Simulated scan of single mutants.
Amino acid sequence: MKINENYRSLRDSYLFSDIAHKVAAFSESHPDRRIYKMGIGDVTLPLAPAVVAAMEEAVREQGERATFRGYGPEQGYPFLRESIREYYRSFGAAVDADEIFVSDGAKSDLGNILDLFDPDNTVLIPDPVYPVYVDTNKMAGRKIIYCAATRENAFLPMPDTSVKADIIYICSPDNPTGAAYSIERLRAWVDYARERGAVILYDAAYESFVSEKGLARSVYEVEGAKECAIEFCSFSKTAGFTGTRCGYTVVPFALKRCGMSLHAMWLRRQTTKFNGVAYAVQRGAAAALSEEGLRQIRANLSVYRNNAKIICDALDTLGIWYTGGRNSPYVWLQCPGFTNSFAFFDYLLEKTGVVGTPGGGFGRNGEGYFRLTSFADETTVRGAMAAFSAAFG
């Protein structure tokens, strides 16, 4: 018997688990201190009323013999896939309902999609980056190369024609930096992938925060992307499903490599290893995309957007450089007075009670930076930025 030796290359624990343990230890030793949690990207507002009503009705259906449903289709019920297709159409991206696969979240699919690719493929990942991209490829033993996301390129790296990669990760709006690609800049990545026969894994989990005209909400807004890109999205941030779990992945029919259809491969993988998302959850997700549901979830999103503005306004007043926030729930700031982001984390927690995420946890180019999230109630955000301003004003 042999184990997967690639696990030896991983950190002992996941970044956000480390942070949670540090905060818990601080709270235990300082029981009277106010803690402002703005580190983990978890939503705080409840599910929209339309979603709750739909899920309650679905549960009642499951309690009646005439309307009970057992195993559903692994790729998702048609009513939800049609709703997602219409949602894409609302911002000018065309996908077929049968190209959509419903899942329990983008994080799961971002890891599971690697079943389709040989371990010998070279993976291109931006730095800094969401740790899941790196760790899931390390687990498989793939060669990873990095493209530098820095202040100089606005944390939006562009293709380098001298670099050969088979799998390319793009997240826009980005986690952790909040930077977002325009449709035109994204076109360069699509052209690069098509010329080289590479596949783009495009994480669109935060697309609902995009408000600026010209910024991409989907890679499929770029002509030719269906020949080279798989897109992952989620209801977690759009509709507050972090505790409900529902997402979707789009694998176009036109995406083929080595004489094989990646759509057919993913369908085969899902029907073998996945039994689908709960019926009640899918009814809730479809309700989130209804006219009334969209109105309600946009009201929630406006709260998070306003929180981001509160953060940005405070940083503007202090003269601290940052990016993100305006088309993203994340604000990525340069650590004031610190070059080590983990030291800044400790200092900020001790001095102000504000919890964020050290940029160094996202990669080498994240060192010296810090991520704050707007996924909190307004009182927490205002209190956090008041404490922050008092410490650095």
Rank of each mutant, 00 (worst) to 15 (best):
A314F: 00
K309T: 11
P358K: 04
R371V: 12
I310R: 11
V354K: 06
F375Y: 12
D313E: 11
W332E: 02
D346Y: 06
D316F: 01
W332T: 08
S341G: 09
F388N: 02
V355G: 15
Y347C: 07
D346C: 08
T317K: 13
P336K: 01
W332L: 00
F342G: 07
P329Y: 10
L372N: 11
Q334D: 12
Y369V: 00
A384W: 03
T323K: 09
I320W: 10
L349G: 14
R364I: 06
L372P: 15
G383L: 05
G363F: 03
R326N: 07
W321F: 12
F375T: 02
N327W: 05
T317F: 11
S374E: 07
V354S: 10
A384K: 02
Y322E: 05
V381H: 03
G324Q: 01
C312Y: 06
T352W: 06
T357Q: 15
K351C: 12
W321V: 04
R382D: 12
N327Y: 05
P336M: 00
A314P: 12
Y330M: 03
L315R: 05
F362D: 09
T380M: 06
T357S: 15
W321H: 15
F375K: 03
D346M: 02
Q334Y: 05
Y330D: 08
E367F: 07
G383Y: 14
F345R: 04
V331N: 04
G359W: 00
V354F: 10
E367L: 01
Y369T: 13
L348A: 11
P329N: 08
K309D: 15
K309A: 10
V331W: 03
I320N: 13
L318W: 05
N365D: 06
F375D: 09
D313G: 15
Y322M: 01
F345G: 06
D346H: 08
V381N: 15
I311N: 14
I310G: 12
N327G: 11
L348E: 14
F362R: 00
L349W: 13
G324P: 14
F370L: 04
A384F: 03
Y330T: 02
G360N: 13
G337T: 07
Y322H: 13
D377G: 07
F370N: 12
F362Y: 14
F370K: 05
W332S: 08
E378T: 15
P336E: 07
F338C: 12
G383E: 10
R364F: 13
T339M: 07
R364L: 10
F344A: 09
G360C: 15
G363A: 09
F370E: 10
A384M: 02
F375Q: 04
I320P: 15
N327T: 05
R382S: 13
Y330N: 12
F338M: 04
A387F: 06
A384T: 02
T373H: 14
G337H: 10
F388T: 05
G361C: 12
S374Q: 00
T323W: 01
T379W: 08
T380D: 08
